[in-house]
């Protein structure tokens, strides 16, 4: 999460050459990260090739075939409308990943920008920005998303905006404290004295140094986004049915948890596995991108 980052001793300036390849091999070197990456990749592929992999139309209802347990006809069973859960799961992966990554990306861009500005500008601007950020953080995420969604109206795009809003605060906060630490480093000071323009300092030194922390945080936040999204469906303001969406499937299936546990259980499990993978990947990224962790090896 964000917090430990701000307490850590800042990293040494990154060497540009081959950093990416090095980072990649460092991630790959870790078993759990490999697992994580493999699973996430599998999900992405499933989402991409959903139309080919699916056995049914994800929104085709079949009255006679409602609430059937997994079988050869319906590999993962059917829901209360007789829709094929396996096919809905595949299409649902698209939405889950789109909502997860979309909202985090959006929140990240806004949060990083605010954090950078606050950290670099200092003074009153910083103070003002951070008070706004504090305010955002004071809202319960779910409530913030709920209220914002009520304002914006229904729709997947609005859902992404609403979730993104709740991510602005945490990103801004982390980035700002990272920037403050990086800024205090002698080499940044030196660069400034050498007359390197601030913009370049920011891009070259600051952003590169805070990037690992942000990436790791983003990885974890993607799972939070998907969880929040399902929470909104639970409260009845999420994705519009019958859109194949995991959160919606879980929320709708909770009514049949004893009669037909697979309706909510299967999307729940799919979601859980994705989230575990994302977390493993994020952990791996942290270890790989954070040079200090190399010391232990």
């Amino acid at each position: 999460m964000s917090a430990p980052r701000s307490m850590q001793v800042p990293a040494v300036p990154a060497t540009r050459s081959g950093a990416l390849a090095e980072g990649w091999s460092a991630v790959w070197a870790q078993r759990s990260a490999r697992w994580g990456m493999g699973i996430v990749l599998a999900y992405v592929l499933a989402a991409l090739f959903a139309p080919w992999l699916a056995t049914h139309d994800p929104v085709a209802q079949a009255v006679e075939a409602a609430m059937q347990a997994p079988s050869t006809a319906h590999w993962l069973g059917t829901d209360s409308f007789g829709q094929d859960i396996y096919s809905r799961l595949l299409y649902g992966a698209r939405l889950a990943l789109a909502i997860g990554f979309g909202s985090v990306l959006l929140g990240m861009v806004a949060g990083v920008a605010l954090g950078l500005i606050a950290g670099l500008a200092g003074g009153r601007i910083e103070w003002a920005i951070m008070r706004v950020v504090d305010g955002l953080l004071a809202f319960p995420e779910l409530i913030l998303a709920m209220a914002f969604l009520a304002v914006l109206g229904p729709g997947v795009d609005n859902l992404v905006y609403a979730l993104a809003l709740s991510f602005v605060g945490p990103f801004a906060r982390t980035v700002r404290s990272d920037v403050l630490q990086v800024r205090a480093q002698p080499y940044v000071e030196a660069a400034r004295l050498m007359g390197v323009p601030m913009r370049e300092i920011v891009l070259r030194h600051v952003l590169l140094n805070v990037a690992p922390g942000i990436v790791v945080q983003a990885g974890i936040r993607v799972s939070i986004a998907i969880l929040l999204e399902s929470g909104l469906s639970f409260l009845g303001v999420g994705v519009v049915p019958p859109t194949p969406d995991w959160g919606l499937m879980i929320a709708e299936g909770r009514a049949f948890i004893t009669m037909a546990p697979w309706i909510s259980g299967i999307p729940g499990l799919a979601l859980a596995i994705l989230l575990v993978a994302l977390n493993l990947l994020a952990d791996g990224l942290r270890d790989a991108l954070d040079p200090r962790s190399g010391e232990t090896r």
């Binding site: 799972s223 969880l227 399902s230 929470g231 959160g247 909770r254 575990v276 977390n279």
Partner: peptide, 9 residues
Amino acid sequence: FGNAFPSFY
């Protein structure tokens, strides 16, 4: 795994 399920579920 503990934080992989929606809390309502």
